[in-house]
Protein backbone atom coordinates (compact mmCIF):
# COMPACT_ATOMS: atom_id res chain seq x y z
CA UNK A 1 0.00 0.00 0.00
CA UNK A 2 1.40 3.33 -1.00
CA UNK A 3 0.70 6.61 0.71
CA UNK A 4 -1.07 9.17 -1.41
CA UNK A 5 0.79 12.48 -1.36
CA UNK A 6 -0.67 15.88 -2.08
CA UNK A 7 1.65 16.41 -5.04
CA UNK A 8 0.57 13.15 -6.65
CA UNK A 9 -3.12 13.79 -6.01
CA UNK A 10 -3.26 17.36 -7.34
CA UNK A 11 -1.96 16.27 -10.74
CA UNK A 12 -4.91 13.97 -11.31
CA UNK A 13 -7.50 16.21 -9.61
CA UNK A 14 -10.32 17.87 -11.61
CA UNK A 15 -9.48 21.26 -13.12
CA UNK A 16 -11.84 23.28 -10.87
CA UNK A 17 -9.84 22.24 -7.81
CA UNK A 18 -6.60 23.46 -9.33
CA UNK A 19 -8.08 26.95 -9.60
CA UNK A 20 -8.78 27.15 -5.83
CA UNK A 21 -6.39 28.69 -3.24
CA UNK A 22 -3.86 26.21 -1.91
CA UNK A 23 -5.23 26.09 1.65
CA UNK A 24 -8.61 24.93 0.35
CA UNK A 25 -6.92 22.48 -1.98
CA UNK A 26 -5.16 20.86 0.96
CA UNK A 27 -8.41 20.61 2.90
CA UNK A 28 -10.17 18.93 0.03
CA UNK A 29 -7.19 16.62 -0.31
CA UNK A 30 -7.56 15.60 3.30
CA UNK A 31 -11.24 14.82 2.83
CA UNK A 32 -10.42 12.84 -0.27
CA UNK A 33 -7.73 10.93 1.56
CA UNK A 34 -9.92 10.17 4.56
CA UNK A 35 -13.19 9.29 2.91
CA UNK A 36 -12.86 8.61 -0.80
CA UNK A 37 -9.40 7.20 -1.49
CA UNK A 38 -9.52 3.39 -1.47
CA UNK A 39 -13.17 3.61 -0.41
CA UNK A 40 -12.15 4.47 3.14
CA UNK A 41 -15.68 5.65 4.04
CA UNK A 42 -16.49 1.96 4.27
CA UNK A 43 -14.45 1.78 7.47
CA UNK A 44 -16.85 4.31 8.97
CA UNK A 45 -20.04 2.60 7.78
CA UNK A 46 -18.84 -0.86 8.81
CA UNK A 47 -17.76 0.57 12.15
CA UNK A 48 -21.10 2.28 12.61
CA UNK A 49 -22.92 -1.00 11.97
CA UNK A 50 -20.84 -2.61 14.73
CA UNK A 51 -21.48 0.33 17.06
CA UNK A 52 -25.23 0.00 16.45
CA UNK A 53 -25.26 -3.75 17.00
CA UNK A 54 -23.27 -3.46 20.23
CA UNK A 55 -25.43 -0.59 21.52
CA UNK A 56 -28.75 -2.30 20.79
CA UNK A 57 -27.58 -5.68 22.07
CA UNK A 58 -26.17 -4.18 25.25
CA UNK A 59 -29.32 -2.11 25.72
CA UNK A 60 -31.53 -5.20 25.55
CA UNK A 61 -29.37 -7.15 27.98
CA UNK A 62 -29.07 -4.12 30.24
CA UNK A 63 -32.83 -3.52 30.37
CA UNK A 64 -33.62 -7.19 31.03
CA UNK A 65 -31.00 -7.50 33.78
CA UNK A 66 -31.90 -4.08 35.17
CA UNK A 67 -35.61 -4.90 35.35
CA UNK A 68 -35.01 -8.24 37.07
CA UNK A 69 -32.61 -6.72 39.61
CA UNK A 70 -34.91 -3.76 40.26
CA UNK A 71 -37.92 -6.07 40.78
CA UNK A 72 -36.01 -8.28 43.19
CA UNK A 73 -34.63 -5.32 45.11
CA UNK A 74 -37.92 -3.45 45.41
CA UNK A 75 -39.94 -6.59 46.18
CA UNK A 76 -37.47 -7.34 48.94
CA UNK A 77 -37.66 -3.81 50.33
CA UNK A 78 -41.48 -3.73 50.18
CA UNK A 79 -42.01 -6.85 52.27
CA UNK A 80 -43.98 -6.12 55.40
CA UNK A 81 -42.86 -9.27 57.15
CA UNK A 82 -39.32 -10.57 57.17
CA UNK A 83 -38.63 -11.66 53.56
CA UNK A 84 -38.06 -15.36 52.96
CA UNK A 85 -34.57 -16.76 52.64
CA UNK A 86 -34.55 -17.08 48.83
CA UNK A 87 -35.55 -13.46 48.37
CA UNK A 88 -32.92 -12.36 50.87
CA UNK A 89 -30.19 -14.29 49.03
CA UNK A 90 -31.32 -12.93 45.64
CA UNK A 91 -31.36 -9.44 47.08
CA UNK A 92 -27.81 -9.80 48.36
CA UNK A 93 -26.62 -11.09 44.99
CA UNK A 94 -28.24 -8.11 43.29
CA UNK A 95 -26.64 -5.70 45.72
CA UNK A 96 -23.19 -7.20 45.14
CA UNK A 97 -23.75 -7.10 41.39
CA UNK A 98 -24.63 -3.41 41.42
CA UNK A 99 -21.76 -2.56 43.76
CA UNK A 100 -19.11 -4.37 41.73
CA UNK A 101 -20.31 -3.23 38.31
CA UNK A 102 -20.69 0.38 39.32
CA UNK A 103 -17.52 0.32 41.35
CA UNK A 104 -15.10 -0.67 38.60
CA UNK A 105 -14.35 1.18 35.34
CA UNK A 106 -16.00 -0.15 32.20
CA UNK A 107 -12.60 -0.17 30.51
CA UNK A 108 -11.30 -2.56 33.15
CA UNK A 109 -14.41 -4.73 32.83
CA UNK A 110 -13.83 -4.95 29.08
CA UNK A 111 -10.19 -5.90 29.59
CA UNK A 112 -11.14 -8.62 32.07
CA UNK A 113 -13.93 -10.03 29.89
CA UNK A 114 -11.81 -9.74 26.73
CA UNK A 115 -8.53 -11.11 27.99
CA UNK A 116 -9.39 -13.18 31.08
CA UNK A 117 -12.93 -14.52 30.98
CA UNK A 118 -14.13 -14.88 27.39
CA UNK A 119 -10.95 -14.41 25.32
CA UNK A 120 -12.77 -14.13 21.95
CA UNK A 121 -11.05 -15.44 18.81
CA UNK A 122 -13.30 -14.48 15.90
CA UNK A 123 -14.82 -11.09 15.20
CA UNK A 124 -18.25 -12.56 15.96
CA UNK A 125 -17.02 -13.66 19.37
CA UNK A 126 -15.49 -10.25 19.97
CA UNK A 127 -18.80 -8.54 19.15
CA UNK A 128 -20.59 -10.93 21.49
CA UNK A 129 -18.03 -10.25 24.23
CA UNK A 130 -18.56 -6.50 23.83
CA UNK A 131 -22.36 -6.82 23.91
CA UNK A 132 -22.32 -9.00 27.01
CA UNK A 133 -19.83 -6.83 28.89
CA UNK A 134 -21.59 -3.58 28.09
CA UNK A 135 -24.98 -5.16 28.76
CA UNK A 136 -23.97 -6.43 32.18
CA UNK A 137 -22.44 -3.05 32.98
CA UNK A 138 -25.47 -1.11 31.78
CA UNK A 139 -27.77 -3.45 33.72
CA UNK A 140 -26.34 -2.18 37.00
CA UNK A 141 -27.24 1.39 36.12
CA UNK A 142 -30.64 0.48 34.64
CA UNK A 143 -31.38 -1.49 37.84
CA UNK A 144 -30.96 1.57 40.01
CA UNK A 145 -32.94 3.73 37.58
CA UNK A 146 -35.78 1.20 37.41
CA UNK A 147 -35.78 0.75 41.17
CA UNK A 148 -36.13 4.49 41.67
CA UNK A 149 -39.04 4.40 39.22
CA UNK A 150 -40.82 1.62 41.08
CA UNK A 151 -40.25 3.36 44.41
CA UNK A 152 -41.61 6.62 42.99
CA UNK A 153 -45.10 5.14 42.60
CA UNK A 154 -47.39 5.85 45.55
CA UNK A 155 -47.94 2.83 47.79
CA UNK A 156 -51.67 3.43 47.34
CA UNK A 157 -51.42 2.13 43.78
CA UNK A 158 -50.17 -1.24 44.94
CA UNK A 159 -52.83 -1.30 47.65
CA UNK A 160 -55.58 -0.45 45.19
CA UNK A 161 -54.49 -3.23 42.86
CA UNK A 162 -54.18 -5.77 45.66
CA UNK A 163 -57.51 -4.75 47.18
CA UNK A 164 -59.21 -5.68 43.92
CA UNK A 165 -57.75 -9.18 44.19
CA UNK A 166 -54.91 -8.80 41.70
CA UNK A 167 -51.79 -10.60 42.90
CA UNK A 168 -48.43 -8.94 43.37
CA UNK A 169 -47.14 -9.76 39.88
CA UNK A 170 -50.34 -8.65 38.14
CA UNK A 171 -50.37 -5.37 40.04
CA UNK A 172 -46.70 -4.80 39.22
CA UNK A 173 -47.21 -5.52 35.55
CA UNK A 174 -50.47 -3.68 34.88
CA UNK A 175 -50.32 -0.85 37.37
CA UNK A 176 -46.88 -0.09 38.82
CA UNK A 177 -44.51 -0.74 35.90
CA UNK A 178 -46.35 1.30 33.23
CA UNK A 179 -46.33 4.31 35.53
CA UNK A 180 -42.75 3.70 36.65
CA UNK A 181 -41.60 3.41 33.05
CA UNK A 182 -43.07 6.80 32.25
CA UNK A 183 -41.27 8.33 35.21
CA UNK A 184 -37.87 6.86 34.42
CA UNK A 185 -37.91 7.46 30.67
CA UNK A 186 -35.68 10.57 30.82
CA UNK A 187 -33.12 8.77 33.00
CA UNK A 188 -33.32 5.70 30.79
CA UNK A 189 -32.71 7.88 27.75
CA UNK A 190 -29.67 9.30 29.46
CA UNK A 191 -28.40 5.79 30.06
CA UNK A 192 -28.95 4.87 26.41
CA UNK A 193 -26.98 7.91 25.27
CA UNK A 194 -24.17 7.09 27.70
CA UNK A 195 -24.19 3.51 26.47
CA UNK A 196 -23.90 4.56 22.84
CA UNK A 197 -20.87 6.68 23.62
CA UNK A 198 -19.31 4.09 25.89
CA UNK A 199 -19.27 1.59 23.05
CA UNK A 200 -16.20 3.50 21.84
CA UNK A 201 -14.27 1.70 24.60
CA UNK A 202 -14.66 -1.65 22.83
CA UNK A 203 -11.59 -0.74 20.79
CA UNK A 204 -9.55 -2.10 23.70
CA UNK A 205 -10.71 -5.61 22.85
CA UNK A 206 -9.96 -4.86 19.19
CA UNK A 207 -13.53 -4.63 18.00
CA UNK A 208 -13.90 -2.68 14.74
CA UNK A 209 -16.43 -0.10 15.85
CA UNK A 210 -16.68 3.41 14.46
CA UNK A 211 -13.97 4.71 16.79
CA UNK A 212 -11.61 1.96 15.69
CA UNK A 213 -12.47 2.88 12.09
CA UNK A 214 -11.31 6.45 12.67
CA UNK A 215 -8.08 5.18 14.24
CA UNK A 216 -7.43 2.89 11.29
CA UNK A 217 -7.92 5.73 8.84
CA UNK A 218 -5.58 7.97 10.86
CA UNK A 219 -2.90 5.32 10.60
CA UNK A 220 -3.44 4.96 6.86
CA UNK A 221 -3.75 8.61 5.91
CA UNK A 222 -1.24 10.05 8.36
CA UNK A 223 -3.67 12.75 9.35
CA UNK A 224 -5.73 12.96 12.53
CA UNK A 225 -7.79 16.12 12.17
CA UNK A 226 -10.49 15.11 9.73
CA UNK A 227 -10.99 11.52 10.96
CA UNK A 228 -11.34 12.41 14.63
CA UNK A 229 -13.46 15.52 14.07
CA UNK A 230 -15.70 13.46 11.80
CA UNK A 231 -15.90 10.76 14.46
CA UNK A 232 -17.01 13.30 17.05
CA UNK A 233 -19.62 14.66 14.66
CA UNK A 234 -20.94 11.16 13.98
CA UNK A 235 -21.50 10.53 17.70
CA UNK A 236 -22.99 13.98 18.15
CA UNK A 237 -25.50 13.50 15.34
CA UNK A 238 -26.46 10.06 16.65
CA UNK A 239 -27.03 11.42 20.14
CA UNK A 240 -29.09 14.31 18.79
CA UNK A 241 -31.29 11.93 16.82
CA UNK A 242 -31.73 9.73 19.90
CA UNK A 243 -32.62 12.74 22.04
CA UNK A 244 -35.25 13.78 19.53
CA UNK A 245 -36.79 10.28 19.40
CA UNK A 246 -36.87 10.01 23.18
CA UNK A 247 -38.56 13.39 23.40
CA UNK A 248 -41.31 12.23 21.05
CA UNK A 249 -41.82 9.02 23.03
CA UNK A 250 -41.97 10.97 26.27
CA UNK A 251 -44.60 13.34 24.96
CA UNK A 252 -46.73 10.43 23.76
CA UNK A 253 -46.62 8.75 27.15
CA UNK A 254 -47.44 11.94 29.01
CA UNK A 255 -50.72 12.33 27.15
CA UNK A 256 -52.81 10.80 29.94
CA UNK A 257 -51.69 13.41 32.41
CA UNK A 258 -53.32 16.39 30.81
Amino acid sequence: MTVLTFAKWIVGAPAWIASLPEGLQRLIFQFYQVFIYENRWKFFTDGLATTFIVTIGALLIGVVIGMIVALIRSTHDNQMRKPNIILRILNSICKIYVTVLRGTPLMVQLLIMGFVVMVPKTSFQTTLCAIITLGINSGAYVAEIARSGIMSINAGQMEAGRSLGLNYAQTMWHIILPQAFKNILPALGNELIALLKETSLVTVIALQDVTKAAQVIVSKAYTAVIPYISLALIYLVLVMILTKLLGILERRLRKSER
Binding site: G161, L166, Q179, K182
Partner: peptide, 22 residues
Protein backbone atom coordinates in the same frame (compact mmCIF):
# COMPACT_ATOMS: atom_id res chain seq x y z
CA UNK B 1 -55.89 -13.97 50.05
CA UNK B 2 -56.35 -12.72 46.47
CA UNK B 3 -59.47 -14.87 46.02
CA UNK B 4 -61.06 -13.41 49.15
CA UNK B 5 -60.05 -9.86 48.36
CA UNK B 6 -62.07 -10.10 45.15
CA UNK B 7 -65.17 -10.21 47.34
CA UNK B 8 -64.08 -7.28 49.53
CA UNK B 9 -64.21 -4.01 47.69
CA UNK B 10 -62.18 -1.18 49.13
CA UNK B 11 -62.39 2.58 48.71
CA UNK B 12 -59.46 4.71 49.81
CA UNK B 13 -59.15 8.20 51.17
CA UNK B 14 -56.82 9.17 48.33
CA UNK B 15 -58.96 7.40 45.67
CA UNK B 16 -55.94 5.53 44.27
CA UNK B 17 -57.30 5.40 40.75
CA UNK B 18 -54.81 4.20 38.17
CA UNK B 19 -53.69 7.47 36.53
CA UNK B 20 -52.34 5.86 33.36
CA UNK B 21 -55.68 4.31 32.41
CA UNK B 22 -58.99 5.79 31.34
Amino acid sequence: INIHRQKMGMVFQQFNLFPHMT
